[in-house]
Amino acid sequence: MPRQLPEIPGTTLFDGAQAMKGYALNKMCYSFNSAENRQAFLRDEDAYCARYGLNTAQREAVRRRNVLDLIAAGGNVYYLAKLAGILGLDVQDLGAQQTGMTRDAFMAKLVAAGR
C-alpha cells in the first residue's frame, strides 16, 4: 500500500494513487509540449480527448476548464499548466479560479504575503 500522506487543507499531493488516476489526462497534457498537438486539440477537442482515453470526469473537467476538478480527476499541476497555456490562462488566473477570488484580489493577496 502506498504510504498515507498527511492532510494539508486545500492541497492534493500528487502521489501514486493520483498518478494512476490521472495518467491519461496528464499524458494528454504532456503532449501539449508540441505546437502541432496544441493545434490538433484546438481544432477538435473531443477527438483529441478521445484519442488519449480520458474518462468522463476528466473530459468534463477539461470541457469546463475547471482546475479543481482537473486535480480531483488526477491532473498534475505541471502538466495541467500546458493545457492552461493553450487556453491563455496564467498562474494568477488559475489561482483566482481555484480560490474563488477575482484575479485582482488574488494578486493583492500575493502582494500582502510580502508584508
Binding site: 494539508i8 487543507p9 486545500g10 492541497t11 492534493t12 482546475v67 479543481l68 486535480i71 499541476v77 495541467l80 499548466a81 498562474v91 488559475l94 489561482g95 481555484q98 480560490t99 488574488f106 493577496k109 500575493l110 504575503a113 510580502g114
Partner: peptide, 13 residues
C-alpha cells in the same frame, strides 16, 4: 509558493 488547489497563492515569508 503553491500553484494548485484551494490553497493556491500560499506563501510563507
Amino acid at each position: 509558493h503553491q500553484l494548485d488547489g484551494e490553497r493556491a497563492g500560499f506563501i510563507n515569508k
